[in-house]
Structure formats: C-alpha cells, structure tokens
Amino acid sequence: MFRLVAGRMLSSIGTLLFVGLALFLLTRSGPGSPARIVLGADATQQQIAQFEESHGLDRPVLVQYGSWLADVVLRGDFGKSFVTGRDVAVEISASLPVTLSIVLLAFLIALVFGLAIGIAAALNPGGVFDRLARLGAVVGLSIPAFWLGIILIRFIAVDLRLLPPGGYAPLSAGLMVHVQTILMPAVSLAVYYIAVLARMTQASLQEALRGDYVRTARAMGLPSWKVVAYALVNALPPVINLAALSFGYMFGWALIIEQVFNVPGLSRALLNAISQRDFLLLQGIVFLFTVIFVLANLIADLVNRTLDPRQRSTA
C-alpha cells in the first residue's frame, strides 16, 4: 500500500514538474514580449531591456524555471503579476472563490441527483425510473454545458425572470443572492455529471444486487433496505472514483461556463493574463488547475485501489 501511494505521488510530482517546465518554454516561445504590452508601443529599447532585466526575463528559460520552482516549493511564492505588480497568489485569490463556489455547488448537485437517480433506476429494473434514467443519460451526456447555459439564460432569466442572467455576488452579499448568481452556472455544469454518475451508480448497484451475498441476506430474511444498503456499500467504489475524476474535470468546463454567464472567475483572469502576456499570473493559474486535476486523479486512483479489493492485487 505504501509503495503504491509513493509511486503514484512520484508520478504526480513528475507531472507537475514537467507541466511547470512546459509552461515556461511555451510562454517564453510565444509571440509578444510582456514588456511591449505592459510598457506600451512607444517604449524605448532601453526601457524594454530594463523591464526584462528587472523581471528576470533576460535570463535563460531553464534558469528562470529553476528560480520560479525554488520560490514556489520553498516559499509558496508564485511571483508578482507583470501588470499589476501584486503577488500572483493575491491575484488568484481574488477570482478563485468564484470558480470554486460554482464548481462545489455543481459537484454537490451532480452527486445528489446522480446517486439518487442511479439508485432509483437500479432498484426498479425495467421500471419507469430505469427508462427515464437511460433516456436522461443519453440526453445529459450530449448537451454541451455552455449551450445549456445559453438556453437557461434565455428561458429562466430573460423569459421567466426567475434568476439574474449573469454576473456574480459573493457570499458576503448574502447567501440567497450568492446562490441566485451561481445556480444557473452550477446547473449547466452539473447536468453532464449527473448523467455520468447516475449511469455508473445504476450499473454498479445492479451488479452488486446480483451478488450471492445479497441472495443469502434476502434468504435469511434481512429487511430489504438493509440488503440494499449492503449492496450499495459494495457498489460505491467505482462511483467515488468517477466522482473524484469528475470534480477535476469540472474546473476545466467551469472556464467555459464562466464566459457564458460573464462571471469574474479564474476564466476571466486566465484570458486577461493571456492577452496581457502576464506570464507569471498565467503560469500560476494553469499550475493551480493542474494541481487540482492531479490531486483529483490521485484520489480517484487511490480510492479505486484501496476500496476495491479486486484492484489491490494489481498494484
């Protein structure tokens, strides 16, 4: 077990190191110097050289990467934004809560509805729920989240005037107002994952209910809900695995969804950083997304290997 965890951690760290390097090579090779963009078109050669020197941009890429990495690992310091001069961590912490609250609400919705629909469908094979779940899975898997967002804005916000069509209110503005602004983005994001999780829950629980121990438990006269509870415990590992992966993927799609609802989250910060060639901010954001995704993958993998005895031996 320890060897497995250590091995997967090493692989994850390797990914992060490689990703960090790739980010450096990529940003430094792209067209457009940040100095030109920050200082404006009429900056002199000297001013540009000075800017590049003070930000270390004149050094070889590998040296820049090394010192960035050392700062990140040793001091948790991601550097300063070229444009605003503020710490990258401060810049990110301004927009991260927006993205995080949308993703968390979406994850919660996906988990609750995905599990509920999956269980209901598995308990009534061939019944109404089963058919609805199958149809819903096909539909849910095929509607792009950003299209759903546009349609929701049209009907819920413009026609019915139930929710604001976009924008964002922080939690400090009141829970109701906050949830009103993130509800539609979260639902658009969640629908695909409701379908994914419901499908997995249904398949896994149906398989578990066919187990010999379920028949034995039934024969021994255990109450039906207890039998289902036992089967559910055995059916959960692949669902948890998928949920962890989904959580990581949701951040990526949240970038697109935030554009639809005009929300000032990481998506706007990232696109601004790209257009202003604000390399350190850009690196910080992409690195953050990658860390979240790597962690989600790691958790999914470990859940799979530890909760599911069939997978343990293949470690």
Binding site: G252, S275, F289, T290
Partner: peptide, 14 residues
Amino acid sequence: AIPLLVWAIAIVGI
C-alpha cells in the same frame, strides 16, 4: 493527469 481544456486555452492563447 493534465487538464485538457485549461491547457488547450492556455496553449492556443499563448
């Protein structure tokens, strides 16, 4: 373990 969409946006953006 590399998140696809973020990287697609970042790479094409740069």
